[in-house]
């Protein structure tokens, strides 16, 4: 039985003043404070980031990259495992 999912957060870092925040990856954490700490521990080990943002992945709305908008629903949520419908032959994933 798979454990309850811990929320995913996207991490953005501004490495130096004058630069914009850049997306660097994601972390898992139960809440915002722990997400911030996880992001700091994971993504700023070699260089101290000046500013760190963590955003719940579920809060991000992404534009549709497909050229033919008719094939896909517009404005898909960024990503979440349950939104992907896989063919049966894939089995457990």
């Amino acid at each position: 039985m798979t454990e309850t999912l811990t929320p995913l957060w996207e991490v953005f870092i501004r490495a130096r003043t004058g630069l914009a925040h850049r997306h660097v990856g994601s972390v898992h954490a139960a809440d915002a404070e722990m997400a911030l700490q996880a992001a700091r521990d994971t993504y700023t080990r070699r260089d101290e980031g000046v500013s760190l943002w963590v955003v719940p992945s579920a809060a991000i709305t992404a534009s549709d990259p497909a050229e033919e908008a008719t094939l896909f629903e517009p404005a898909k949520p960024y990503r979440h495992p349950s939104f992907y419908v896989l063919p049966d032959e894939v089995g457990d994933m």
């Binding site: 798979t2 995913l8 972390v27 994971t42 990503r79 495992p81």
Partner: peptide
């Protein structure tokens, strides 16, 4: 560093539609 690399890679795999929990399982 290796723990960190594991984290980056799990994050990359998750963009494809699988959760960390499932991978660990």
């Amino acid at each position: 560093d290796e723990a960190g690399h594991g984290l980056y890679l799990y994050a990359a795999a998750e963009t494809l539609g699988i959760s960390r929990e499932e991978m660990v399982e």
